[in-house]
Design a protein around this nucleic acid. Structure first.
Lengths: 343, 343
DNA sequence: CTTAGCACTCAAATGGGTTAAGTGCTAAGA
DNA sequence: TCTTAGCACTTAACCCATTTGAGTGCTAAG
């Protein structure tokens, strides 16, 4: 158990270190602590904190830096999220303002807003759409030989795709295709639609199996609607915080962002907002980095994920405040979205 | 005028320098030149080339590196584009394979392919769509309160947008809107559509002017179709070739990519494939870098632009070969696209 | 015109000396 | 028992001189 003074010192070390990025010495601490003790006393306390594993040194005569245990203790027990400033809140709301945004776009925009506000890299996961059904199907003639195929899912998601009608299919045949699809697969869960079209409707296969035909269209469009999608904002912000002299590391981080793995490992599912340190993860690419994540629930699908990837020495108080507020705004915006759709 | 031997030496210097990135000395040249002369002779020739301004030194006793004049002479007079290898050609064709791609997607994919094949950064400009007309207009009911608005341009471009019907507009009123739009603005050039809707159809304004109403939809959708669009592939490849120790420069390059300026200055419009060196440009952000660009013509719109941004010491022979071949493939793909649309 | 030979140049690497920030420890004071 | 002044000690960072090696220009002979 840490004394009041030790807590003060640990917090000050972390706050200073996340500010200036340099090891913190006893004299620097002395000057800014609210209590007045000599630097020798602070050194004693620091030695204690080091024995307990909360801080560490870069070399035997350097100042102290927080250890992972120290960071962990700080984010779990000490930190108070900073209230988000009016201006940032305004810019979040402004970005969500348009009524025409689809869920995908809202999530994508979110990644950009977050990376802009933090100068770090933002990762957004769209909620996994389980038990979606195919609610509607339209086919709209566009040009001589083209139609637009439109699929509407039960959550209001709309996907569309232009499709060139193969030579030798008459209008009547198309009518038939449309009718059968409406009768047979509208209402089915999305993941059963393709199977049903493949197996249960042999009568259609002569049209459906045409190369590059309907089945491909359906497949790719359904895929788009169902697939768990990851949006990354501010990739280039890596340059702000990653060790820019180590190009190899920058590249592997960048590669990681293109293929975000093991989401479950990256978050603490028990909390609305959680902090994971790269050192705590098995994948050592993320050592030196820290992931602050929050879940959000749009009320219609599974949980989505918001995450900020930054250096281990992030200003956690500010980031946690920002992420918490953003989480609320996003959830409100999504609920509003579905409200519009249903109302 | 340069002698045969001087040409050989200049070419070898450039080839080696683009390979290894180090100044080239007389002995290294001696070993690989097809002619057999002493290093002293080569030194004499190098001194001559330096007096003429084709090569230069980093310091008084270093090997030689090409000057901009040397690069310019090389790309204008010496270089022979390397034939693209079968494998790369295959991967280009494979990426263009799907029949369902829209022009935007083809161009976007192009940026990715090019950056992957070169390890540099690719910039693609969609042809500016002048004199497009609005060829078709559809409105498809989707949910209780939503319709999908679909606009078809005369080149086959299709843009769509979900639209929530304002409260208090009846089905009959919507019918009226649709009919008037079909009668009055279908067939007009895209850039006149909005004006016409605004001014010449006061009868509709009560519906059209509704907050977040049709006019906004039309505006944003038309905008998407007309706007000159820039796609950038391989931003992260900057890390491969930009001076990675200079984070500031990386950022300004990255910023440049987000707002590609003065296209006309960047290309030599007289050639299918051209090379511009950053040092030749007024904007000094691009000093040290080189832009290989090619135009392409889809036969329906203005010219589009393909460009590769890399270091000044790029392997030009290979890059020119690649870009030339890519240009052909892309043009063929686009012609095929429009053929499908019209056929 | 070519080439061997040689003095010369300069960046990069190496290594010693100094500085400054910071520590741990000890002994005295409250 | 806790706090503090004092001091010896450690180490990265910086500076500066020296060495090394790759490469050049020039000269004189073939």
């Amino acid at each position: 158990m840490l004394t009041e003074r030790q807590l003060l010192i640990l917090e000050a070390i972390i706050r200073d270190y996340t500010d200036i990025g340099q090891p913190i010495g006893s004299k620097a601490l002395q000057q800014q602590l609210p209590i007045h003790v000599s630097s020798a006393t602070i050194r004693n306390e620091m030695a204690f904190l080091e024995r307990q594993g909360y801080i560490t040194k870069e070399h035997s005569s350097s100042g102290r830096i927080p250890s992972i245990k120290g960071y962990r203790y700080y984010v779990d027990n000490i930190v108070k999220p900073t209230k988000l400033d009016k201006q940032s809140l305004g810019s979040i709301r402004h970005s969500f303002d348009s009524e025409f945004l689809k869920v995908d776009e809202i999530v994508e925009i979110s990644a950009r807003i977050l990376s802009d506000l933090t100068s770090y890299t933002a990762i957004m996961l769209k909620p996994e759409s389980t038990d979606l059904r195919l609610e509607g199907f339209r086919m709209v003639p566009i040009g001589n030989q083209q139609v637009m195929v439109i699929l509407v899912a039960s959550d209001g998601t709309v996907e569309s795709q232009i499709f060139t009608i193969p030579q030798g299919i008459s209008g009547d045949e198309l009518e038939l295709v449309i009718r059968v699809i409406n009768d047979q697969v509208v209402g089915l869960p999305l993941n059963q639609v393709i199977t049903k079209l493949h197996t249960a409707l042999p009568i259609l296969t002569q049209y459906l199996k045409h190369p590059n035909g309907f089945l491909d269209i359906f497949g790719s469009v359904l895929d788009k609607a169902v697939r768990e999608q990851v949006y990354v904002g501010g990739r280039m912000n890596l340059l702000n915080f990653a060790q820019s002299n180590n190009v190899e590391q920058l590249k592997s981080l960048s590669a990681l962002l293109n293929h975000v793995p093991n989401i479950d490992e990256l978050i603490d599912a028990n909390k609305d907002v959680s902090v994971r340190f790269g050192y705590e993860l098995t994948d050592k690419v993320l050592a030196n980095y820290s992931l602050i994540s929050a879940t959000y629930d749009d009320g219609h699908n599974g949980e989505g994920l918001i995450a900020i990837l930054g250096p281990t020495n992030m200003p956690y108080a500010k980031m946690l405040g920002l992420l918490g507020a953003f989480r609320k705004e996003l959830t409100a915006r999504l609920i509003d979205y579905y409200h519009n759709f249903e109302g």
